[in-house]
Structure formats: C-alpha cells, structure tokens
Amino acid sequence: MEVTDPDPRALPVLLRATSDDERGRGLALLEAVSLRWGVRQEIDCKTVWCELGGT
C-alpha cells in the first residue's frame, strides 16, 4: 500500500503519542499492522509505503 503527499519538504516521523495527544499515531499504527514500511522521497512529493501480510 502507498500513500503519496505532494509536499516533499517534511518527512514523517514515528512518534510515541501519549493518551492525551490528539495526533501522532499514524505511523505507530502503520508499524503495528505492517510487515515493514518506509518513506520514499522524490523531488516533487513523498510516498509512505507499507507491506501488509495475510493469508
């Protein structure tokens, strides 16, 4: 699975959100459900990708 963002400036960062935080859980959820994930940065965009397992 891939999600592309047209803003290449800021790369996503894996955060450890607390129970009071209203943001910062997206990559933690991705890490929890995927086999592996990463970020591909290009000149005009960035893409977060992941590999999902399953049978």
Rank of each mutant, 00 (worst) to 15 (best):
T18M: 03
Q41V: 11
M1H: 13
D20L: 12
Q41A: 12
L15S: 12
A17H: 08
W49E: 06
G54A: 06
E31K: 08
T55R: 13
V3Q: 13
G38Y: 04
D7F: 03
E51Y: 05
S19Q: 09
G38H: 04
G54L: 00
L15F: 11
G24W: 05
T47K: 00
L11Q: 05
P12E: 02
C50Q: 08
A28D: 15
P12F: 00
G38S: 06
L30M: 10
W37D: 01
V39W: 01
R16V: 12
V13T: 12
I43S: 12
S34V: 07
A17D: 09
V33C: 07
A10H: 10
M1K: 08
L52K: 05
G24T: 07
R23N: 15
A32Y: 03
E42S: 09
L11H: 00
G54Q: 04
L35H: 10
V48Y: 05
W37E: 02
E31A: 14
I43V: 10
E42P: 02
V3S: 13
Q41F: 04
P6L: 09
E42R: 15
D5F: 03
K46R: 14
S34I: 06
K46F: 14
A32S: 14
R40D: 15
T55I: 09
R40H: 12
L11I: 00
D20F: 10
Q41R: 15
G53M: 05
W37N: 01
L11A: 03
G54W: 03
G26I: 07
R36P: 00
L35I: 11
V3G: 09
R25G: 10
Q41D: 09
G53F: 06
E22S: 12
L14W: 06
A32D: 10
A32I: 02
Q41G: 04
G38E: 07
L29D: 14
C45M: 07
L52P: 00
W37I: 01
P12G: 01
R16K: 13
E51N: 07
C50L: 15
L14T: 10
M1W: 09
L14H: 08
L29K: 11
G53K: 06
A28K: 13
P8G: 10
I43H: 09
L30Y: 03
S34W: 05
A28W: 10
T55M: 07
V33N: 03
D7Q: 08
L14R: 15
R40Q: 13
L30W: 02
C45Y: 12
R25A: 10
T47C: 01
Q41E: 12
